[in-house]
Structures are given as C-alpha cells and as structure tokens.
Design a protein around this nucleic acid. Structure first.
Length: 502
RNA sequence: GGGCCGUUAGCUCAAUUGGCAGAGCAACUGACUCUUAAUCAGUAGGUCGAAGGUUCGACUCCUUCACGGCCCA
C-alpha cells in the first residue's frame, strides 16, 4: 500500500506537494508509470454525449465495453468498494464509475491513490446510472499524468481576478465560462476570415517592427536591432503596409493580428491588442458601412444565434440598418448644443470649457470638436451607430470630402459606448498625403506625442498610384467583449498585461 | 497620474469596541457498492500582502510600499 508512506504528514501546501511527489515514487515502485505516453483516446466527452446520450441502458450494453477516453479528474466520490469520479477533457465532462469487483483489488487500491487533478485514461463500457447519467463502467484505468499541486476549490472555482489572469491555466480548468469565451473568440475570428475570404480578400502578414511607427495616433514601444544598429518600433497599426499592398495590386487585403500601443492599461485597453484591418479598392467609406453591417450581423447570427443580445445590462440590437449621424449632429443631439456653436472656434472653445476640457492656445477647431465628441457622446452610443464626417485635423490618412475639405470621408462605429471600428476612404493623392503628414509634423513639434510621423517611403508608394480605396480597422478584443458580455478586455485576452512581482 | 476599495489556510470566505485567527471545500485517518457541492466520524493545516509606527496588547488604528479591482484623467 502506498498510504503508509504518507501517514503523519502535516497539511500545509509544502507538505501536500511533498506527499504528492512521494506518490510518484510509490507508483514507480509498483510498476505504474506516473507519466506514460501513447494512450490512445477513442472518443471525447462531447462525442460520447452526442452519440450515446439518448440511448437506453439496453442499447448501451450492446455497444460493448471497449470505449477509451481520457481527461483530468475533477471530482472523486468514494464509497468503500465503489468510486464515482468525473473526468474533464476539452469538450466537457463525463462520469466514471469504478467498482472493486470489476477492476480487481489491485487496480482499485491503486486508484485510491489517484488525486483530483490527475490525468487518467479509461477503458470500459457506457451505461446509465439510477439518475440516468451517461457513465463509463471502468474495466481499466491508467494514470496518464500525475499532478502534484491541488486545484482551486471545486464549487466556487478560482475567483481572485489577479490569480485568474496570472494563472490563466487554472481559470481555464475550473471556470467553464472562461474557456467558453476563448472558444467564442476563435469562432468570431474564424467567421471573419470566412466572410472576407468569401469576398475574395487576401489574408496577409505585414511587419510588426516598423522603422517609422504609423497608421494611428498613438505612442509606440521602441526597440533596437543590434545587428543593423537601428531603432525599431512595434507597430501601432498595419495600415500603411496594407495600403502599400493595394498599390501593388492586391486590391482586397486583410490582416488580423496584434498592434502595440504604449499607453495606459484599463478595462478597455491592453498594450497589445488584436485588430482586423481590411482594404478594398474601388470602395468608399459608404460601402464599408454596409459591409460592416453585413459582416457583424453574420457573426452575431452564427455566434449568438440572434441579432439582439444583452451587454452589461443593455439590450443591443444588431438589426440593420444601423443609425448614421455626423459627428456634429451627434454632439448637438447629446450635448444640446445650438446650431453654429461648433462651427466657430471661439464658441466651441467656450463650450468645451464648460465641459472641463482644456486646450493649448492654438488648438485647431477640428480637434476641439473631436474632443467634445469623445467627452460627451461616445458613452451614449449603445446601439450600433456610425458617426461620420470627422474633421480633417484628426484624420491624417482619410480622404477629404469633395464638397467640404474641412471634413473627411470617415466613420467610426460605436457599440455599447465603445469604439469598435474606424474606417475611411483612403487618401490616394500623394500630394495631399504629404501635406497631411507635414501638418502632423507641426503638431508633433508643438508637443503632440501622438501626432503622425512623416513617412517618405509611403508617400513614394502612393506616387506610383493607388486605386481609390476604402479601409477599416476593427477592434477584435472589443468585438469579442460585446459578443461574450465581458466588461473588461482582460476577460477576452488569455494573458492580459499585468505588472510582475508578487 | 488621482480617488475609492481589496489582499487572512492550496481555494472560497468569516473574525463584534484593539483582547487566545474561524468555517466550507481540498488534504490526511477511518466507515460506506448508484453518488454527483455524496454522507458520517476524526486529524492536521496560518509570516493575517510587505516594512515601519502607536499601544500593556494590532488581522483590526496610523504611515510608507507592492500587487490587484472599480471609477476618473
């Protein structure tokens, strides 16, 4: 017996670890390998339940007793000469029934030394218990991987938020909802790929390390390439590279991958986050609004089975068409601002001051309008809403409107009070783009650390000619938050950024 | 960066006014052949986030720090 080895131990964590390590030696001494390889799994829990969950006891009996399954022991209920346990695999759980008179005294006694958390393989037949639960009657049970650390509590799971993020593997083992979120995340991204693929978009990978950080207004992370002796920046957006590809004739491209922004961490922001960016030649920002409605509704139908869902206590309805309003209209609606106030710098500044917003002396009207919008309106845009006509000063990569060069052919999509997407008709006039970069450079010199850099190489690409094109960026993490009813971005990122040390 | 809150056994949580730190699960011993948060009897398990301070006495009050949460910038 193994038991004798471990009698009299204390019971703090170190003692538990010690006694579990000793079990490994005891198993070895008994000829039971604690970490064997090569166990072949016949069916998983989902297959068992889907294929046999409705069969009668008689029908199950005819299927024989040669099913093999494997998983992690999640519970043990022991009764002297019989033991019930549940094992869990990636697809779910199934109950295992072990009887001394079926597997024999040696096997039974050995199993008594197995612990919650161990991986086991079982061979046996399926049957129904008194309570009709589909269960494996074990003929043979094999240790597949011995655990030595105890799992979190079975009923409450792992609650401590910090521990859930730092030890995400434990969260995934004991909190089914967490695992579901990441399965849904995968499904959402998969659907986006299918959707874009079906519309003849090409998926590409562009550099993560940029000599000039561009494509967004954000501070970058800086790094250094030793061999080349040069500074590099983790990308803040893939935008300028994707548009170079459009110049190269890839008229429909997309990329789903990480961008990095050296900014604060919050429930809405992780330093590295996942964006979808896609570009379509011969489309305009108006086309992309319809496109976005179509894509998002397709995803919601597939993932949620409905277009109406709950997000943090709010009912959100994806049924198109979605509301569209200009930035100025939005401010007037939500801020009860009289017509004309936003059109004049003095009155706009005055109004912004009442909201508690402050600006540097020579701030542009467009930026003031944009800040007022951010402060006043964003949080109210719960139902999907396209906000259009962004000021040219805050949109250095967006095409100017033909009938009003102060505004751009741009929209942002808001859902649940969050910015989910940003899109515009692209600037394909290299002279215009160069002027915009120059204006950004002035902003930068005036102290705006988020102003866009001059990118001569990108201008050169435009000089070869880019077809009229529209492009869009979608925050995948935020989209997943919406569709999984998660209040924090950390719930949808497997390993969110946390400070080290503890 | 600021405000508020939190940090107690492996996990989930208690601890009255500043007066011997407690429970459930997990673990260990024993009983038990259909349980499912199994049950029953027993045992053991603590640097109360860290460092200072006040006090006869600090999980509790004060200060600083670390990490986390929520809100704000």
């Amino acid at each position: 017996m193994i038991v004798s080895v471990i009698k009299g131990m204390g019971e703090n964590l170190e003692d538990i670890l010690t006694q579990r390590r000793k079990k490994i030696d005891s198993f070895k001494a008994l000829g039971i390998p604690p970490f064997p390889n090569g166990f072949k799994v016949g069916i998983d829990c989902r297959q068992a339940n889907d294929s046999f969950g409705t069969k009668s006891g008689e029908e199950l009996k005819e299927l024989g007793d040669d099913f093999t399954m494997a998983g992690r022991i999640m519970a043990i209920r022991s009764f002297g000469k019989t033991i019930f346990t549940h094992i869990q695999d990636r697809t779910g759980k199934i109950q295992i029934y072990i009887r001394k008179d079926v597997i024999g005294e040696t096997g039974f006694n050995n199993f008594k030394e197995f612990d919650i958390g161990d991986f086991v393989g079982v061979r046996g037949g399926l049957f129904r218990t008194k309570t009709e639960e589909l269960t494996v009657m074990v003929k043979e049970i094999t240790m597949l991987s011995k655990s030595i650390r105890p799992l979190p509590e079975k009923w409450h799971g792992l609650v401590d938020v910090e521990a859930r993020y730092r030890q995400r593997y434990l969260d995934l083992i004991v909190n089914p909802r967490s695992k579901e979120i990441f399965y849904k995340r995968f499904r959402i991204i998969q659907l986006i790929r299918e959707f874009l693929g079906a519309k003849d978009f090409l998926e590409v990978e562009t550099p993560m390390m940029h000599p000039i950080p561009g494509g967004a207004a954000a501070r970058p992370f800086k790094t250094f390439h030793n061999a080349l002796g040069m500074d590099l920046y983790l990308r803040i957006a893939p935008e300028l590279y994707l548009k170079r590809l459009v110049v190269g004739g890839m008229e429909r491209v997309f990329e789903i991958n990480r961008s990095f922004r050296n900014e604060g961490v919050s429930t809405q922001h992780n330093p590295e986050f996942t964006m979808l960016e896609f570009y379509q030649a011969y489309a305009t920002y108006l086309d992309l609004m319809n496109f976005t409605e179509e894509m998002f509704t397709a995803i919601a139908k597939e993932v949620l089975g409905t277009l109406c869902f709950d997000y943090q206590g709010e009912k959100i309805d994806f049924t198109p068409p979605w509301q569209r309003m200009t930035l100025k209209e939005a401010v007037m609606n939500y801020g009860e601002v009289e017509k004309g106030v936003l059109d004049n710098k003095e009155s706009a500044l005055n109004y912004a001051g009442k909201l508690g917003l402050t600006f540097k002396a020579d701030e542009s009207l467009g930026k003031i309008q944009f800040k007022i919008f951010e402060d006043l309106v964003e949080q109210h845009l719960v139902q999907p809403t396209f906000i259009t006509d962004y000021p040219v000063e805050v949109s250095p990569l967006a095409r100017k409107k033909d009938d009003n060069p102060e505004l751009t052919e741009r929209f942002e999509l808001f859902i649940g009070g969050k910015e989910i997407a940003n899109a515009f008709s692209e600037i394909n006039n290299p002279l215009d783009q160069k002027e915009r970069f120059a204006a950004q450079l002035q902003e930068k010199e005036a102290g705006d650390e988020e102003a866009h850099e001059m990118d001569e190489d990108y201008i050169q690409a435009l000089e070869y000619g880019m077809p009229p094109t529209a492009g869009e960026g979608v925050g995948i993490d935020r989209l997943v938050m919406l569709l999984t009813n998660s209040s924090s971005i950390r719930e949808v990122i497997l390993f969110p950024h946390l400070k080290t040390n503890k």
